[in-house]
């Protein structure tokens, strides 16, 4: 089982959903309080959504100074997988682990609705179980979701296959080049604005987000057994 550390900041509010989604995918997921300095042998680190510190200064701007962020950065530098969802994505940008930043939505309003994103890169620890070009329906719920980078960085992200998800049908928040998620140069740190943990079961309207979590487990399985194995009740392509 992959050990998945879900970091809890004061104001995180998708921590329980993210933990549950990882566990449903078969991982050994647990919370790590932001004041701790130890990730407790995590294989994967997830920064969940929410409003860390109320987003009072700027989304993610205070959380990045939390004691645990030193350990998260070290984990990332060592090539360990890190996923930031929504506010977690904002924190990773603020911490300099991902390029760019997330600004107020173009329409200046909080927006909660389904979004459609296309998988642009399968070469990350979290998208390996999708096919390039898969279109996923996943909810968004954010006020500061407009991904902004300068043109040079955007071109560089495109050229190096680091745009991981892109909005299709419409761009709900005005993100640069319709970007919904990116990864770092090492491809191990990934940020996504929509919430895959909110769409991982038929009762929630679909399970387009589930493979983000299954991927964590599958990657672990291949690392440790180099085979194809069933995780939970699903047979996974690896």
């Amino acid at each position: 089982m992959t050990r998945v550390a879900v970091i809890v900041f004061p104001g995180s509010n998708c921590d329980a959903d993210t933990l549950a989604a990882a566990r449903e995918a078969g991982s050994d997921a647990y919370y790590v309080w932001h004041r701790d300095a130890d990730l407790r042998q995590a294989d994967v680190v997830v920064l969940p959504g929410g409003f860390s510190y109320g987003d009072y200064l700027r989304s993610g701007a205070i959380a990045r100074f939390s004691p645990i962020m030193g350990a998260v950065a070290a984990h990332a530098r060592a090539g360990g997988p890190v996923l930031g969802i929504c506010n977690g994505f904002q924190i990773l940008c603020e911490a300099g682990l991902l390029p760019g930043g997330l600004m107020r939505n173009a329409r200046l309003k909080f927006l909660s609705r389904p979004a459609w994103v296309r998988v642009e890169s399968t070469d990350t620890p979290f998208t390996g179980l999708y096919d390039r070009g898969d279109v996923l329906e996943i909810p968004i719920a954010h006020g500061d979701g407009r991904y902004v980078v300068d043109e040079r960085t955007a071109a560089e992200l495109e050229a190096s296959d680091r745009v991981v998800w892109r909005y299709v049908r419409d761009n709900p928040n005005g993100s640069t080049r319709d970007i919904a998620g990116v990864c770092n140069a090492g491809r191990n740190v990934v940020g996504i604005m929509p919430h895959p943990e909110r769409r991982n079961a038929p009762i929630l309207g679909g399970q387009d987000g589930a493979r983000v979590f299954y991927a964590m487990e599958a990657r672990h399985a291949t690392q440790h057994a180099v085979d194809v194995r069933a995780v939970g009740d699903r047979h996974l392509r690896v």
């Binding site: 959504g49 309003k109 927006l111 719920a141 919430h195 929630l204």
Partner: peptide
Amino acid sequence: VYEQYDSTVQASTVIAPGGDAGVIRVR
């Protein structure tokens, strides 16, 4: 109005706003 309200946090929303009544599951 309702798209300004987060209607899917807690990952339990079965019927979101816009229908007759909202429905949630209990994990």
